[in-house]
Design a protein around this nucleic acid. Structure first.
Length: 428
RNA sequence: GGGUGGUUGCCGGAGUGGCCAAACGGGGCAGACUGUAAAUCUGCUGGCUUAUGCCUACGUUGGUUCGAAUCCAACACUGCCCA
């Protein structure tokens, strides 16, 4: 990793400078953070992998650690069994405890990429709220928590209001189960305060309401003085959804999103987003970030390369990042002088193609589907007819074409869909 | 429990017996232009080895009809109002 922020830096200043603060509970938060605190963020175990959307929270935890505080990773095993109403228009599908356990482990592993776990004073610890909710009975819950919560208060929260209001837009009702979600999440904070000395909860802007409930509950139950801090929702300047690429979600796991695609995701961000993303998703010093973000015109591409490289390095390691960068370089920058292009890197999605099979000839459409560049033959056909497919550098426009040994060059066949997507078949 | 709406493709949303694989918008993909950007313009956007063809699809099941997303019945789910 790059030079760590020195532990004397105030976490709040660091985060604010990096554009990672949307809202915080009080202006005394700097003061609070002048002494080491324990801070937590909750993660939903709804999938066994995290995508780039969660990267913000991961970075947040990393900064917590770097500034000398103790990060706590809360996996919502119990809350995951309930479903978060925030920002969803419909109830989340429920999961089995086994699945959640499995997911929790995978998630912690990925958070471990940027945060150090262990027993030291600033080492991160992992907790699962199923550990305290699992054994808690209905009566206890009502007396402990229910008695302290105002329904009026909960009803006035944005996430609930949207689901309740009659005539208007996305009213789809809210079940009691979901309604209780914020209660559980609020209780988490109180519990973590009591058992881990946790006084700060962080999260995305959409979690603000839940965080505030937790602060309230902490005060009522334990007379605790708690604080909250949220990060801005990561948006793209063009209004699109952050974290989606041509292939769907961008995952941190290389088996779900290849290193090459991961790199490309960052390489392809809009000009206007470069600075913000550098601040949020890398540990580069802000002076350098500002300089990179200030690049004008074509020069901004260098900054994008840097962004893509740094983030890829963080998640997939240096050698993978080097390779992704080099592959991309060769694939895009020097594509005019095609003969020199080299697409053999591991980073580019690839598979092997049987030589014997090739001898018989493989349908182009089938090959596109096999490469995952099209979901069906029809889609592949449209792609070809639309002029979006190339084999190596030659455009092919006949959907009926078959691919055979003549198409092999340097031991592989490179199929490209559009400018940016490609798939290599190694022949062997 | 009573009343009353709704359920259409990835999403939103038209369509109230044939001209419906289903308007329009969004999103997505591709092409042109570019800087692997944005904006703009153009094409495509259920599946089938491409077909004046077939299949699957308008909540589910059954019915009426030469013909149903459209009509009828039951069921399911869901919104709202009243208790």
């Amino acid at each position: 990793m790059t030079t760590p922020t020195t532990t004397t830096d105030n976490l709040f200043d660091v985060l604010e400078r990096r554009g990672m603060v949307a809202q915080s509970t009080d202006d005394k938060i700097r003061e609070r953070l002048s002494k080491p605190v324990t801070a937590y963020i909750g993660f939903d175990p709804t999938a066994d992998a995290l995508h780039v959307g969660s990267l913000v929270q991961m970075m947040l935890l990393a900064h917590v650690q770097r500034c000398g505080h103790k990060p706590v990773v809360l996996v919502g095993g119990a809350t995951g069994l309930v479903g978060d109403p925030s920002g969803k228009t419909e109830a989340r599908r429920m999961l089995t405890p086994e699945t959640i356990n499995h997911n929790a482990r995978s998630i912690a592993e990925q958070i471990g990429l940027v945060v150090r776990f262990g027993d030291g004073p600033t080492d991160a610890v992992l907790v699962n709220n199923l550990d305290w909710f699992g054994s808690m009975g209905w009566i206890e819950m009502l007396r402990e928590v229910g008695a302290k919560m105002s329904v009026n208060r909960m009803m006035s929260m944005e996430s609930v209001k949207g689901r309740m209001s009659g005539d208007s837009d996305a009213a789809s009702g809210i079940s009691y189960l979901e309604f209780s979600y914020m209660l559980m999440q609020g209780y988490d904070f109180a519990h973590l305060y009591k058992h881990h000395g946790c006084t700060l909860q962080m999260g995305g802007q959409d979690q603000w309401g839940n965080i505030v409930v937790g602060i309230d509950l902490g005060r009522r139950l334990h007379n605790a003085d708690l604080a909250g801090l949220t990060t801005p929702l990561v948006t793209k300047s063009d209004g699109g959804k952050f974290g989606k690429s041509e292939q769907g979600n961008v995952w941190l796991d290389k088996d779900r999103t290849s290193v090459f695609d991961f790199y490309q995701f960052w390489r392809n961000v809009s000009d206007a987003d470069v600075g913000r993303f550098l601040g949020t998703f890398t540990f580069l010093p802000m002076d350098e970030v500002d300089e990179l973000a200030g690049a004008e015109g074509k020069a901004i591409n260098e900054s994008k390369v840097r962004l893509a490289y740094e983030v890829t390095k963080l998640i997939h390691g240096e050698s993978a990042a080097d390779e992704a960068r080099d592959s991309a370089e060769r694939a895009f920058v020097s594509s005019s002088s095609s003969s020199s292009a080299d697409f053999t890197g591991e980073a580019i999605p690839h598979d092997t193609l049987d030589a014997a099979e090739l001898e018989a000839g493989v349908g182009l459409l089938a090959l596109l589907v096999r490469a995952g560049l099209a979901k069906s033959n029809s889609e592949a056909r449209r792609l070809v007819q639309g002029g979006g497919v190339r084999i190596h550098d030659a455009k092919v426009d006949d959907p009926m074409r078959t691919v055979n040994a003549d198409d092999v060059a340097d031991g592989y066949i490179l199929v490209r869909a559009g400018k940016k997507r490609m798939f290599r078949f190694n022949v062997g």
